[in-house]
Nucleic acid binder design. Structure first.
Lengths: 105, 105
DNA sequence: TGTTTACAGAACCATATGGTTGACTATGTA
DNA sequence: TACATAGTCAACCATATGGTTCTGTAAACA
């Protein structure tokens, strides 16, 4: 839970990203989250489980409803990892020129 | 190719992230990439294919070797997506306090 | 020319993923 | 009490994933 594998895997699904997007508006019940999607609530429940396992949201049982709340912290870890490559997409053309000039590392 | 689904999915595997890391040192042949891993070259070849499909690296056929080069640009798109949530992990505690204070969105 | 190298491709396997339906549990409400 | 609501769980299914081995092929080399 909470490692890069599970975080990136959780984010690799459109439905799950939409769920997270939904949660930026505030907490939501599972049935609220399921409503916009053309799939069973069970399916959405599974997606929520994946997001929960990845630590991207927290579920609070309250009466007979489950209230989900965004927890974006694992995204920070993912972003930190991606940021190590920032130089590579920023200086992509520089690097290309470097390689074409025969400069191997 | 190159959408968020495939990008995040490609990044969700430790081996593939290690391959990308390897490529930050410069371009590499497939057999070079495969060397550090305790798995067949065929397996690594499949990982490279996944990364290639995601646009995270380019493969250039040169003689009998395949030369891989990092293309970090799709990571920018992923980072851009993640950055929309930056406020949520930065102000996580603020939000928590907000919710505890009874302020719903 | 023959051999080695560097791959690709196909077939196969076990497990994971994303979806379904139906049955069940627990909570709230009339 | 009886019923509706919210959600889980189990079973099932099709496809994807990550690995293997074996075979084939094109390029480099002796």
């Amino acid at each position: 839970m909470g490692n890069l594998d599970t975080t990136f895997a959780a984010l690799s699904d459109e439905t799950r990203r939409a769920i997270l997007q939904q949660l930026t508006h505030g907490e939501a019940r599972l049935s609220d989250l399921a409503a916009p999607f053309d799939m069973s609530q069970t399916a959405v429940s599974k997606h929520v489980r994946v997001l929960s396992d990845a630590g991207l949201l927290t579920v609070e049982k309250r009466g007979r409803t489950r209230h989900c709340r965004l927890n974006a912290e694992p995204m920070k870890v993912a972003t930190d990892w991606l940021n190590d490559y920032q130089a590579f997409w920023m200086h992509q053309f520089d690097n290309l020129a470097h390689h074409l000039a025969g400069g191997e590392d």
